[in-house]
Design a protein around this nucleic acid. Structure first.
Length: 460
DNA sequence: TGAAATGTTGGGGCG
DNA sequence: ACGCCCCAACATTTC
């Protein structure tokens, strides 16, 4: 029996691929990726993520070809059109894929399920993108968790996540349907701005496996180093996990195997990733709207120039600017710094968190709707496990604390590199010496007071 | 996975 | 020797 394995861009791997296993068990499989320019109502892929997707799809095709298979690419107005066409052309009787958390993707799943069933084709979605199937963890009251720590305890109490499944043997396919050249998907940027990305990353399952292996050698040091943007203390696995070149449970078991209970601080971060998907699945409106409805009345400012200075790393606060420039250059930012720049946007500048989410969406190689939403709503104080409204990061204190030698600042803001440590954190004391570095765009102490007053006003 | 303001403690310099 | 003060270090509270 022939089946289609529908790759959806969050599952671009051959190991621990439940859909691929399910198809291969029944007979020949047609691996298919459907490109939908308008994206069926989803957020259109951001530039950095589109770059990554192109590399990863190319790599998946190469890997499949070494196994006598290949990746079929189709462009369609709606996903279901391409699925039905390939099913018809190949005589496939089943379609296997993996569930997603995003509302638009969930809607597509419902349409696909209905149409395939109407045509007598079996459709099976595996729930393997997260450690725990979405919706499986509930509070005592039967509601989804909205606070992380109880969610984490519940995840641990459930026992270790399922073991990864091995890559299957792929039975030969007699006749392949037509495929489009990858270049026709137009995922590549027209102007080549991806140089920094190419230097930093190796998209694809092989790159993911290597990154996991090298991180696992140091996972025991994670707790001590994870907040230091000047060091390589984090796993840098986020884009690989985002595109499913590596599954969360592969990551979990690799970390566990390498360090046992010493791996737990990092496993906890994997659980944050799960938390994001579970939340978006349970509260599908939160990618656009605050989870806590009272925040709809918050007096956000609208200031295009201020937004632009933040985006380009021209705020005058070294850690904020270093982070924004790292993001622009590499498509990635250290998580500690993400919290600092997010706090600066929503509290110091009082610009809407959705603007920050949109910018991250377009520039991060690991841009993921569920985790981006969770992070921004958390920072703004309007989401799950929200930082209390009064929690305002001081960008100077944060850089003194977490970039003690100002090495991260010097790496990403070269105009500050000649300053001694103390002045690199506070260049406004020595501003005449740093050519081209701006004055602080706001006074933090004053901005903090204004933000607190605004939050107080909203609460009454 | 805050920071600032305020309160407390204790070592040490000094008359 | 003693009391006084300064202040760093730490703890608590407040936003």
């Amino acid at each position: 029996m022939i089946s289609v394995v529908w790759f959806r861009g969050h599952d671009l791997r051959l190991t621990d691929n439940e859909a691929l296993c399910a198809g291969a068990e029944l007979g020949p499989v047609i691996p298919l990726y459907v490109h939908v320019p308008a994206d069926d109502g989803a957020w259109p892929l951001g530039g950095a993520a589109a770059w990554w997707l192109q590399q990863s799809l190319g790599d998946l095709d190469v890997q499949l070809r070494t196994r006598g298979s290949r990746l079929i690419l189709r462009t369609a107005e709606h996903t279901v059109d391409a699925l039905l066409a390939v099913v018809r052309e190949t005589g496939a009787q089943a379609v296997f894929s993996h569930r997603r958390s995003e509302p638009a993707a969930t809607a597509v799943e419902a349409t696909v399920a209905r149409m395939l069933t109407d045509h007598g084709v079996q459709f099976v979605l595996s729930d393997a993108h997260t450690l725990v199937p979405m919706g499986a963890l509930r509070t005592g009251a039967g509601t989804p968790y909205r606070v992380f720590t109880p969610f984490w305890r519940s995840l641990l109490a459930r026992g270790e996540p399922d073991e990864p499944v091995a890559e299957p043997q792929l039975p030969p396919v007699a006749q392949w349907p037509t495929s489009q050249p990858l270049a026709e998907l137009a995922l590549q940027p027209k102007v080549d701005w991806a140089i920094g990305l190419r230097e930093r990353w190796q998209p694809g399952e092989e790159g993911a496996t290597q990154a996991l292996r090298s991180f696992c050698a140091a996972v025991g040091d994670y707790e001590e180093q994870r907040n230091r943007p000047d060091l390589e203390g984090t796993s840098s696995l986020s884009p690989h996990l985002r595109f499913g070149e590596l599954s969360a449970r592969q990551a979990w078991h690799a970390g566990r195997g390498a360090a046992g209970s010493r791996a737990e601080p990092w496993l906890r971060q994997l659980a944050w990733r799960d938390f994001g998907h579970h939340l978006l699945h349970a509260y599908p409106h939160t990618a656009e709207q605050p989870l806590r409805p009272e925040f709809a009345a918050f007096p956000w400012r609208h200031d295009r120039m201020a937004l632009r200075r933040w985006q380009r790393g021209q705020t005058g606060y070294p850690l904020v600017d270093a982070g924004m420039r790292q993001l622009w250059h590499t498509g990635w930012m250290h998580n500690r710094v993400r919290m600092v720049v997010a706090s600066f946007l929503v509290k110091d500048l009082m610009l809407p968190w959705q603007e920050g989410a949109r910018w991250f969406w377009d520039t991060l190689v690991d841009a993921d709707l569920a985790n981006n939403t969770l992070g921004w709503q958390w920072a703004a104080g309007c989401g799950a496990d929200a930082a209390p409204y009064f929690r305002v990061f001081n960008p100077t204190t944060q850089s003194v604390k977490f970039d003690p030698q100002a090495e991260y600042i010097r790496r990403w803001v070269p105009s500050l590199s000649a300053l001694p440590v103390r002045e690199a954190h506070r260049p406004w004391k020595a501003i005449e010496e740093c050519v081209g570095y701006p004055e602080p765009m706001v006074d933090h102490a004053e901005a903090r007071r204004t933000a607190l007053a605004a939050y107080n006003g909203m609460r009454t």
